[in-house]
Simulated scan of single mutants.
Amino acid sequence: MTTPSEPGTTPTEPGDARVDPSLSVIISERRQLINLGYRLLGSLADAEDVVQETYARWYAMSRQQQEAIHHPGAWLTKVAGRICLDLLGSARARRESYVGEWIPEPLPEPTEWITGRPGGATPDPADRVTLDESVTMAFLVVLESMTPAERVAFVLHDVFRYSFAEVAEIVGRTPAACRQLASSARRRIRASQVPSAPAARQAGLVRDFKQAWETKDIGTLIGLLAPDATLIADGGGLVSAAFRPIEGGEQIARYMIAIADRATLTILERTVNGQPGLVAQHDGVTVTVAAFDVPSDRITRIWAVRNPDKLWPWTANPPR
C-alpha cells in the first residue's frame, strides 16, 4: 500500500520562522493532517474542521508549553487522531438521521480542483489529499463498516506507518489491543475486496458506460453491469436520489436512463478518488460524481454522490 509519508508542505511567508521558529514545522504538517482526517472520516470538510481544531489547541498553549513539546508533528497527529476518534463515535448517530444513503465525499485529481470552499476561497495545495489505494471509494466504504477504534488503529498503522505504541497513545488502549484492532480491520478489508481490473480496462468500461448513458442505450448498459451489480446514491435529502441501494444490472440501467430522460446532462470522464469515474453536469454545475468498482470485465458497484454539499471541489458555480 502506498503510504503518504511525504505529504508536502505549505509555503510560509518570509520572516515567519523569525517570528516563531516552530511555525514552519507546524504549518508543514497541515497536509499530513488533512490526509489523515479524510481517510478516518470520509469527509474533506470534516477533515478541515479537525485540522483547524488541532491548530487551535496548539495555539491555545503558552510559548513555554509549545517549546516543551519536542516533536510538534507527533503531537499534532495525536491530537487530530483523538478528535477524529471522538467524531467517529458520534458519526454513527448522525448517520442514523441522514436522509438516504451516506457515501464518502468524492475527490478529484489534485490538478482538477476547480474551486475552494463554497464562497469562492482559493483551494490551498495543503488541503488536497494524496490519492492512492487507501482513498478509493471501495476502500473508504469498507472503512465505514469498522468500529471507530478499528478504523483509527488500522489507518494510523497500515496506511501512515505509525507504531502500535504510538497508536495506543491516540486510541487509549494497549499496543497489543491496537495490534488486534488493526488485525481485525485487515480481515474486513480482505473479506470485502477483490483485485481490480487493470486501470486501462477500468477506464475503457467506464467510457463505454458513459457513451451508453448518453445515447440511452439500455442494452449496452445492462451488458456492462454485472447481473448482481449495486448502485448507491447519496442526495443527503437536498436533491433527488434513490433512498435505498438499487440491486441488479437491469434495474440500474433503467434508473440511469430515467435520469437521462429527466434532464439534459453533460457527462465527463474524470478521475474520482484515484480511479476512472464520471461527472454529470447540468448547466455547468456538477450534479453527480460517480465512482465505479470494476474487478474484472463488468461493473459491480457504482457510488453516485449527488449531495451538493459534497461536490464543491468539482464545480466552478456551487449552488447557493
Rank of each mutant, 00 (worst) to 15 (best):
R207Q: 12
R207M: 04
A177T: 15
R82F: 07
E13F: 15
R30I: 06
Y38C: 02
R94E: 15
Q65I: 01
R173Q: 11
A80W: 04
I170D: 03
G274M: 02
F154H: 14
L156S: 07
D297L: 02
A17P: 00
A177Q: 14
I299P: 13
Y98H: 15
D234P: 10
P72D: 09
A176K: 11
L85H: 12
R57H: 12
G100N: 05
F292V: 00
T147E: 12
I302Q: 05
S163P: 09
G235A: 03
S145E: 14
P313I: 00
R262S: 13
Q32S: 14
A291H: 07
Q52N: 13
W113I: 14
A263V: 12
R188L: 15
T147Y: 02
F243A: 11
T77Q: 10
I267V: 15
A80K: 06
R187E: 13
D20A: 07
V239P: 04
I222M: 06
P118K: 04
W213M: 10
D158M: 10
A253N: 06
T9P: 01
D309P: 01
R207A: 14
S62W: 09
S22M: 13
Q193Y: 00
R179F: 14
Q180M: 09
L225C: 04
I170C: 08
G73S: 11
V51D: 07
A242M: 07
P276L: 04
M1C: 07
A149M: 10
S24W: 04
D297T: 13
L131Y: 01
T111S: 15
L311F: 09
A121E: 15
L231N: 00
T115D: 13
L40C: 04
R188A: 08
R63T: 14
L143E: 03
A149F: 12
L76Q: 11
K78Y: 08
R254S: 09
I27F: 11
S296P: 00
P72M: 04
G204T: 11
A258L: 02
D228G: 00
P276I: 02
P195A: 00
P72W: 05
D16I: 02
G284P: 14
S5M: 10
F139C: 08
L87Y: 12
T174V: 02
R128T: 03
A182T: 05
E169R: 13
R39G: 06
G249C: 08
Q211H: 14
H282N: 06
L225I: 02
W113A: 04
G284F: 10
D127S: 12
A191K: 05
L238W: 05
E109S: 14
P110H: 11
T130W: 11
A165N: 14
A168V: 11
E144V: 01
T136E: 12
A241D: 02
V129P: 03
A242H: 13
R301L: 00
D283G: 00
S145V: 01
G223V: 01
D283S: 12
Q275F: 05
T3S: 15
R94D: 15
W75K: 07
Q64G: 06
D217N: 15
E67I: 04
G42N: 07
I83C: 08
F164Y: 15
A263E: 13
R173S: 09
W113K: 03
R30V: 09
R254H: 08
Q211F: 09
C178S: 07
L88F: 13
A68W: 03
P110C: 09
V152H: 09
V129D: 02
A80H: 07
C178E: 03
Y38H: 10
H70Y: 09
E29L: 03
A60P: 04
W303E: 02
H282I: 06
